[in-house]
Nucleic acid binder design. Structure first.
Ligand SMILES: [Zn+2]
Ligand SMILES: [Zn+2]
Ligand SMILES: [Zn+2]
Ligand SMILES: [Zn+2]
Lengths: 165, 165
DNA sequence: GGGGAATTGTAATGTTATATCATTTCAGTC
DNA sequence: GACTGAAATGATATAACATTACAATTCCCC
């Protein structure tokens, strides 16, 4: 009965659909909030969503530089700051990298499963983890503001297929 | 009935005792394992244990430079790698910094409560969090190798005392 | 189309971490 | 007590990640 197994995207899924969906949600959310999803910010979001692997700021910069003369680190970090503030992406602390949020409508700190072999990331919103964390913090007299839960290991594909680096 | 509240060190505790205890355990463990806790590594461990706040690699380097001419980044990072490998310290991913382990005898991934105001860190080993994480990962078909759980918020002291920056 | 805020451009710098090769130290051996 | 190979450290350079500061531009609202 367990084995939901839909947390990871799956090797041959229609990723174009992931991207279109993410972009459409972003447009709609920003429009609703009166936030300006400019061409630059939209493009950075697309780059983050180019796959289900964390993307580093300088990876984004490399892509941007091919498209806009004079892109610099602040160009990227400002766009990332906006996307983080709007909850459209998450920062993966253990990787110094960023990944698209799969449920940007409501603000949350998710949990992340990150594959050591292929880097694919699954975003979870597990109420059990959340409750356990809140309980432990309360027991210590600690008031929680932000949670970073990042689990490294092997994704379903890489467990079975061997370590296809 | 809850409120264990002993996770955080407490403002006026005997920190000399913390340090002496940590160093004695480190000596004993390394001796047992045939690992060489050299003068440099011992000193770096002491610096990490100078308080209950995360210490950055370059903070350590600053201290070392006053004591040894020619200390350089690799000097610090090699010592940190050794201490991490021996389980004597933990790396806090969300801070790019390091903290002494309170239970180095057995290898583990702890959970960390980090105060936004005073930076004090409490290390937890909460079986509930652990079980929740393992359960969620299993449900996704993911095999866990390393867990990073870092919770930011306000420690008991800073909640009551107001934000004494 | 003018004023003011938000966004982007541009240059420099700060912070964290690793690669590479030379040298020293140390335990075990002869 | 010198010899030797492995571990540890010294030393230089560079990579990777992120921020500060100020100028120029764009955009919204009037
Ligand atoms: Zn996809
Ligand atoms: Zn994988
Ligand atoms: Zn203490
Ligand atoms: Zn505090």
């Amino acid at each position: 009965m367990p084995t939901d197994g839909d947390a990871f995207p799956g090797r041959g899924h229609d990723h174009g659909h992931c991207v279109r969906d993410a972009m459409a949600r972003a447009e709609s959310l920003c429009s609703l909030r009166g936030a300006r999803l400019t061409a630059l910010r939209r493009r950075v979001l697309e780059i983050v969503w180019s796959g289900h692997k964390p993307v580093g700021a300088y990876d984004i910069l490399d892509v941007l530089k091919r498209e806009r003369a004079g892109a610099q680190p602040p160009t990227v970090y400002r766009a990332l700051d906006f996307l983080l503030a709007q909850g459209l992406i998450h920062r993966l602390e253990s990787r110094n990298a960023y990944a698209g949020c799969i449920a940007p409508d409501t603000r949350h700190d998710s949990q992340f499963l990150i594959c050591r072999s292929c880097a694919t990331v699954a975003e979870l919103d597990d109420p059990g983890i959340d409750a356990a964390v809140r309980g432990a913090a309360a027991g210590a007299g600690f008031s929680v503001e932000h949670r970073a839960v990042e689990i490294e290991g092997l994704c379903p594909d890489c467990r079975t297929g061997g370590d296809h680096a």
